[in-house]
Amino acid sequence: MQVTVKYFASIRERLGTGSETLDTHATTLQALRDELLARGGAYAESLARGKSVRLALNQVMCDESAALVAGAEVAFFPPVTGG
């Protein structure tokens, strides 16, 4: 299935792209993150399991257990603080 993945803030800077369209076999956000981690390099560094990374599915915050559907928009971003 095809999904759109968006990257924000420091993740976008490290990967050098703000978004991409992917063909994936992932059925959850966790599986999609695993596929991206398997790419290695900047993906493995930016999305590593030990890092705080927030996820949204179709513009709704969720955890990695959320089911992925064809045509979904997934966003990865670091926690945001304000002052």
Rank of each mutant, 00 (worst) to 15 (best):
V3E: 05
L57F: 02
V53M: 01
I11K: 00
V69I: 08
L68N: 04
M1P: 15
T21F: 12
S10P: 10
Y43Q: 03
R49H: 06
L22Y: 11
T4G: 15
T28R: 10
V3P: 08
R12P: 14
A70D: 08
G18W: 06
I11A: 02
L37R: 05
A48C: 03
V69P: 08
L57Q: 08
V69E: 11
V5T: 06
E64G: 07
L37P: 02
E73A: 15
I11F: 01
V60F: 13
G71D: 12
Y7W: 00
R33D: 00
T27Y: 03
E13T: 15
D63N: 11
L36Y: 03
A9L: 10
L32W: 03
A75Q: 00
D23K: 15
Y7P: 02
L32D: 04
V69T: 08
A75G: 06
R54W: 05
V74M: 01
G82C: 09
T21P: 06
H25Y: 07
A67E: 10
V74S: 00
A26L: 04
R49I: 05
R33T: 04
D63R: 14
R39G: 09
A48R: 05
Q59T: 06
E20H: 05
V5K: 02
A26P: 00
K51W: 01
L68P: 04
H25T: 14
T24D: 14
T28Q: 07
V60E: 09
I11W: 01
T4R: 15
L32P: 02
R12L: 09
L47E: 02
A66V: 06
A31C: 03
L55K: 04
Q2G: 15
G50H: 07
G40D: 12
F77D: 02
V60Y: 12
V74C: 03
A48W: 00
V3T: 12
I11D: 00
S19T: 07
V80F: 01
L36N: 03
A70K: 10
V3F: 11
G40K: 09
A70N: 13
L68W: 04
T24Y: 12
R39N: 09
H25Q: 13
E73N: 13
G40S: 13
L47W: 00
P79H: 06
R12N: 11
L22D: 09
S52Y: 05
Q59K: 11
A75T: 05
S19V: 09
T17W: 10
Q2T: 15
S46Q: 01
S19L: 07
E13F: 05
T24S: 13
A56D: 01
F8D: 06
F76K: 00
I11V: 11
A9M: 07
V80P: 09
A56I: 03
A42K: 08
L29V: 04
A38G: 04
L68R: 01
R49Q: 07
Q2V: 15
E20N: 12
V3Y: 13
D34Q: 04
L15T: 12
R54K: 07
